[in-house]
Amino acid sequence: MFKQEMLRDLIKNYFAEASEDQLQYIENELTRELEVTTHAKIREMVSYERIKRLMD
C-alpha cells in the first residue's frame, strides 16, 4: 500500500516543527483513513463490476 516512510516525509513537509508524538499520531490517523478509503473504493468497484456482468 502506501509506504510509511513516504507518508512520514509528506507529513514532515507540511508540519516540519512537529514532535515525534505528533508525527506518529498524524501518521496513524492518515494510515487508518487511507485503509478505510481504499477498502470502500474496492467494494464500490467490485459491486460495479458484478452489476455490469449481470446486465450483460
Rank of each mutant, 00 (worst) to 15 (best):
M1N: 11
M1E: 12
M1Q: 09
F2T: 12
K3Y: 02
K3P: 03
K3F: 02
K3N: 10
Q4D: 15
Q4T: 12
E5M: 03
E5K: 08
E5P: 02
M6L: 10
M6P: 01
M6K: 08
L7S: 06
L7K: 05
L7G: 04
D9R: 08
L10D: 05
L10S: 07
I11F: 01
I11S: 02
I11D: 02
I11R: 01
I11Y: 00
K12G: 05
K12Q: 12
K12Y: 04
N13D: 09
N13G: 09
N13L: 07
N13Q: 11
N13C: 03
Y14C: 04
Y14Q: 09
Y14E: 09
Y14A: 07
F15V: 14
F15C: 10
A16E: 13
A16K: 05
E17C: 01
E17V: 04
E17Y: 01
A18S: 15
A18D: 07
A18W: 02
A18H: 06
A18Q: 03
A18N: 11
A18K: 03
A18V: 02
A18E: 03
S19F: 02
S19D: 07
S19K: 08
E20T: 12
E20G: 04
E20C: 00
D21A: 14
D21K: 11
D21Y: 01
D21W: 01
D21H: 05
D21Q: 15
Q22V: 06
Q22T: 10
Q22E: 14
Q22S: 08
L23M: 13
L23D: 00
L23W: 04
Y25Q: 13
Y25W: 04
I26S: 01
I26W: 02
E27F: 00
E27M: 01
E27Q: 11
N28R: 13
N28D: 14
E29T: 12
E29W: 03
E29I: 09
E29A: 14
E29S: 09
L30R: 00
L30Q: 03
L30C: 09
T31Q: 10
T31N: 07
T31Y: 02
R32V: 08
R32C: 05
R32F: 04
R32Y: 07
E33Q: 14
E33S: 14
L34Y: 12
L34Q: 12
L34I: 12
E35V: 10
V36L: 13
T37E: 11
T37S: 14
T38K: 11
T38D: 06
T38I: 09
H39L: 10
H39Q: 15
H39D: 14
H39G: 01
A40D: 13
A40M: 12
A40N: 11
K41T: 08
K41D: 08
I42L: 13
R43I: 01
E44M: 09
E44H: 07
M45P: 00
M45N: 12
V46Y: 05
V46E: 14
V46R: 15
V46G: 00
V46F: 05
V46P: 02
S47D: 11
S47V: 05
S47E: 09
Y48F: 10
E49Q: 14
E49W: 02
E49K: 14
R50A: 08
R50C: 04
K52W: 06
K52C: 00
R53N: 04
R53Y: 00
R53D: 03
R53H: 03
L54S: 14
L54Q: 15
L54E: 13
L54R: 12
M55W: 05
M55C: 08
D56C: 06
D56K: 15
D56I: 08
